[in-house]
C-alpha cells in the first residue's frame, strides 16, 4: 500500500534574480513498511523534499499525496492537524522540550491529539521501553546523552501512531555507538511493527541499514535502489 505518492514535485527559490531549483521534478512512491534513505550531497534537495513530504514547506508545483490526501488542498491549520495525526518527525538536533521529562515529551503529541491520560501514560511507557529508555522515563533532556535524547525523539515521533516517520539527518549529531543503537531500534520497529521510515542522511551507516536508497542530485532523483533485507 502506498503511503506517500509524489508526482513531479518542484520547489524553486528565487535568490537575487537567480532561480534555484531545490527540488526539480521528483516523482516517487513510498510503500507502507519501507525503510528508505534519501541521500545526496549538500544542496541536492534532500531536506527540502522531506519538508514538502512533511507538509512543512509548500511545493512550487507538483503534488504530495499521503494516505490519499493531497497536501496541496490543505490550509495552514488543516496541515498542522494533518502532521499531528499522520506524520512523525525526528530532527537532527533532537528538539525535545527541555522543561519536560522523557515521558512528558513522548506524551506531548498524544495530548495534543486529545488522548486520555491513561492512554498517554501507557503508550509513552511502552514506547520508551521499546527504545531502551524504560528506566529513564522521568529524566529531563539535559540529563540524557545525545543518543538517549534522539531515542526519546523517536518515541515521540511514534507516539501519535503516524502513517510514517520522517527523520532529517537523525544520526548527524551522534557518535557511532549511539548511531548503531538508534538504527537498530528503528530497524526493529520497522520490521516488527511495520512502521515506515524515511530518512534524509549523509551517514553511510544509515544507508547501509536502509532497504531502499534514493539518491538525489541537483533536485532530481539520480538513482532509486531497493535492496533485499537491508544489509
Amino acid at each position: 500500500m502506498k503511503v506517500i505518492e509524489i508526482d513531479n514535485l518542484k520547489k524553486t527559490y528565487s535568490e537575487s534574480e537567480v532561480e534555484v531549483h531545490a527540488v526539480n521534478g521528483v516523482t516517487l512512491d513510498i510503500e507502507e513498511g519501507e525503510f528508505t534513505a534519501i541521500v545526496g550531497p549538500s544542496g541536492s534537495g534532500k531536506t527540502t523534499l522531506l519538508n514538502m513530504i512533511g507538509g512543512l514547506d509548500i511545493p512550487t508545483s507538483g503534488e504530495v499525496i499521503i494516505g490519499g490526501s493531497n497536501m496541496n488542498h490543505l490550509n495552514g491549520s488543516e496541515l498542522t492537524d494533518f502532521r499531528k495525526n499522520n506524520i512523525g518527525f525526528v530532527f537532527q538536533a533532537y528538539n525535545l522540550i527541555p522543561v519536560l521529562t522523557a515521558k512528558e515529551n513522548t506524551e506531548f503529541v498524544m495530548k495534543l491529539q486529545g488522548k486520555s491520560k491513561v492512554e498517554c501514560e501507557k503508550r509513552s511507557k511502552e514506547l520508551l521501553e521499546s527504545v531502551g529508555l524504560g528506566e529513564r522515563i522521568n529524566a529531563r533532556p539535559n540529563k540524557m546523552s545525545g543518543g538517549q535524547q534522539q531515542r526519546v525523539a523517536v518515541a515521540r515521533a511514534l507516539a501519535s501512531k503516524p502513517k510514517f516517520v520522517l527523520a532529517d539527518e537523525p544520526t548527524a549529531n551522534l557518535d557511532s555507538k549511539s548511531t548503531e543503537t538508534l538504527l537498530d531500534i528503528m530497524e526493529k520497529l520497522n520490521k516488527e511493527e511495520n512502521i515506515t521510515f524515511v530518512f534524509s542522511t549523509h551517514d553511510a551507516r544509515v544507508v547501509k541499514k536502509a532497504r531502499r536508497v534514493i539518491t538525489l542530485e541537483d533536485g532530481k532523483i539520480l538513482s532509486d535502489v531497493r535492496k533485499n533485507g537491508g544489509e
Partner: peptide, 16 residues
C-alpha cells in the same frame, strides 16, 4: 524560536 517551530511542526496549533 526553534523549539516553537518544532512544536508547530509536530502539531501544535497557533492558537495553542
Amino acid at each position: 524560536i526553534k523549539e516553537l517551530g518544532m512544536l508547530m511542526a509536530i502539531g501544535m496549533k497557533k492558537l495553542q
